[in-house]
Design a protein around this nucleic acid. Structure first.
Length: 405
DNA sequence: AATCCACAGGAAAGTATGGACA
DNA sequence: TGTCCATACTTTCCTGTGGATT
């Protein structure tokens, strides 16, 4: 027997459950697909493509539908002798138009000619027009998570490039995908009218639709009879609970599968789902904490201590002294209150903390109350995993330990 | 309806850091 | 190497805000 043996596998193909898997059929989005198809119609006629703006919460099939339709479009276009190039970019880590432009150039260029930062904005745009014109045909640019771009310069430039004479050959259309409803309103009206020519809204999945999706995937991802309906229903309920989020459900199903494999189970059970949910929760917290800046972690630490002392919910004003003490022990200069509030707000955004607005009128004005929204043990564990905080705040940990006992 | 509290959160400017290029 | 250009994070200064109180 070798050191490595395949697991007693309940999976037929685990990759089916991964986020990047492109299903062959889209379930439960018939109406949206229909609208999407009509928005893309000009492309197949060889006309200038419309700009399309998709919005809807995370995990409601925006990206999946786009991927599906673009590959259909590509093959249909070949039949009709239309030349189409699609570029897909996720703007998740791109916070400026500048970075997006670089990303697009690099998508179009071969890897030896990749550019990085250092050029002026103008030069970068020149390069982009040059590359787009070199392609010369219809180009569809998909900008996933456009709301991560903090300035709308590129969203303004691309649709106008042709009119401004920067592009002569290429016909460029943008498909913007966002899960931030407010993003559209934040755009300048010029960008709004051009980017949002066609607007599609994706509603959250109903629990029943989620069950259909999970069943569809489970049937190909797992062997027959591995996933009972109760497990599907439980995973679907998890995703439907707050957001109608298929990705959440699929992640949970995959984690459940992995736990089933660990337990060498032949069939998944609801208990596996519970375990998987806890495990996902934990990694969410750990990732959230690791993603914080050092200062953010210190603020969290202060909040954590206040929580253990039973002083939560608490307002920013009361976190400040505790936070300054943490900083002192960590031998770090404390931030100014304004900045610390931002960090608290960020913790709330990440779902690590929660905040409630309070207003006592003349006797207290408007303020937020913060409290921890995650188990303190889990947070402490996560904070310990970030090495640099532990060394510097050893004394605080002792203090914290004393308070626990 | 006017007042006012006390913080929320936007804007601008500063600091530190790092890549490209000549 | 110094200059130019970019980003991330921060500080400083400021106006905006909602509801209890008058």
């Amino acid at each position: 027997m070798g050191l490595f043996e395949p697991d007693t596998n309940i999976y037929r193909d685990r990759d089916i459950l991964r986020e990047d898997y492109q299903p062959e059929k889209i379930v439960g989005r018939d109406e949206e697909l229909q609208q999407y198809i009509s928005a893309l119609q000009p492309v197949i006629n060889g006309d200038q493509p419309s700009n399309i703006f998709l919005y809807g919460k995370a995990g409601v099939g925006k990206t999946a539908c786009t991927g599906y339709l673009l590959s259909e479009l590509q093959s249909d276009a070949e039949e009709h002798d239309v030349d189409i190039t699609t570029i897909r970019t996720n703007c998740e880590d791109l916070s400026t138009s500048y970075q997006v432009a670089i990303q697009l150039i690099n998508e179009l260029r071969s890897s030896e000619e990749h550019v990085t930062t250092g050029y002026s904005k103008r030069q970068i745009y020149e390069m982009l027009w040059e590359e787009l014109d070199k392609v010369g045909s219809t180009v569809i640019i998909v900008l996933d998570e456009v709301d991560h771009i903090n300035d709308d310069s590129i969203l303004y430039q691309i649709p106008r490039a042709r009119a401004n004479g920067n592009l002569t050959e290429a016909k460029v259309g943008i498909i913007g995908i966002s899960n931030d409803f407010k993003f559209r309103e934040g755009l300048s009206s010029k960008v709004q009218s051009s980017l949002c020519e066609k607007e599609l809204q994706f509603p959250a999945y109903e629990a029943a639709e989620l069950r259909d999706i999970l069943r569809q995937r489970a049937d190909i991802a797992f062997h027959d009879g591995v996933v009972p309906d109760a497990v599907i229903a439980k995973c679907a309920a998890y995703g439907a609970k707050d957001a109608g989020d298929a990705r959440q459900s699929l992640d949970l199903l995959m984690e459940t599968g992995d736990i089933g494999v660990e337990h060498q189970a032949e069939q998944l059970t609801e208990a596996h789902v519970d375990e998987a949910r806890d495990s996902l929760e934990k990694s969410r917290v750990v990732e959230g904490v690791n993603g914080l800046t050092h200062q953010g972690q210190l603020v969290l630490y202060a909040l954590l201590i206040l929580n253990e002392e039973g002083k939560t919910p608490t307002r920013a004003r009361d976190v400040q002294p505790q936070y300054e003490m943490v900083c002192e022990r960590a031998a770090v200069d404390p931030l100014v209150p304004r900045r610390m509030r931002d960090h608290l707000g960020e913790l709330a955004m990440l779902g690590i903390a929660s905040r409630t607005e309070r207003n006592k009128g003349e006797a207290g004005g408007r303020y937020y109350e913060y409290s921890l929204d995650t188990s303190p043990e889990l947070l402490l564990e996560a904070l310990e995993e970030t090495v640099d905080i532990v060394g510097k705040t050893e004394s605080i940990q002792k203090r914290f330990g004393d308070q626990l006992s």
